[in-house]
Amino acid sequence: MAAALEIRDLAVVYQGVIQALTNLSLRVPEGSIVALLGANGAGKTTTLKAVSGFLPLEDGRVTRGSITLGGQDILKLAPHMIVRRGIFHVREGRHIFSEMTVEENLIASTFAQRKSRPRKDAFDEVYNYFPILSQRRNQAAGYLSGGEQQMLAIGRALVADPEMILLDEPSLGLAPLIVQEIFEIVAQINREKKVSILLVEQNAVIALKYASYGYVIENGRTVMAGSTEELSANEDIQKFYLGVETERAA
């Protein structure tokens, strides 16, 4: 059963003094892809960490606001319990276990499963979406290419059979063709498995292409929201996000 994620009036402080979020609200309806846009340091990754419960691990704290999944408060839950509620955070920089094999990486993710499901079914599903991982299943994950590592990071999420994936900068450091390929598969997962996706992405062009709705955050607050068509047509967005992107593309 899928459920909507709702963040209301969220404020976050690191180390008691550094205000990372001041007033952030957003909603991810069930089964949708929602993009979170903003400059470096705007608070995109902090937002994802607040949802997945990582803040206490980095000396951060939610000082105001609420986060609910399907109406249930998840703010007080420990991170390993939040993932078992169905929200899987694929971290920026992929963070695969490089010393372990591809398959051991997937085994590690079985701890996130809400209800147990035969290991083979879960892994076959991953290998079905990412056939290259099947060929490399017994290789140390550190030897995968960047694109393959990103696939493994998303594959680990699939093992958990989540309702929602928090996807942080999947395009980071990858060639445009690989980025395209990965986003196609993510869109396919979203369609076929009804997994909703909250996407943080520097590459605004591709984020707006695949998402249906977007939020723009600046200095820790939501400053703009709208369907991706509306956002793409907006002059500020074109100037600051899409324009920046074309210059950066070189």
């Binding site: 990582f54 971290r91 963070h95 490089s98 701890f111 680990r156």
Partner: peptide, 24 residues
């Protein structure tokens, strides 16, 4: 064992281990 993999996961990267449902 699965427990051994959890140990290695927590050893390599605690936050990522948590993100995969492992109670570090």
């Amino acid at each position: 064992s699965r427990a051994g993999i959890a140990l290695r996961a927590a050893a390599a990267d605690q936050i990522t281990a948590y993100s995969m449902g492992i109670d570090v």
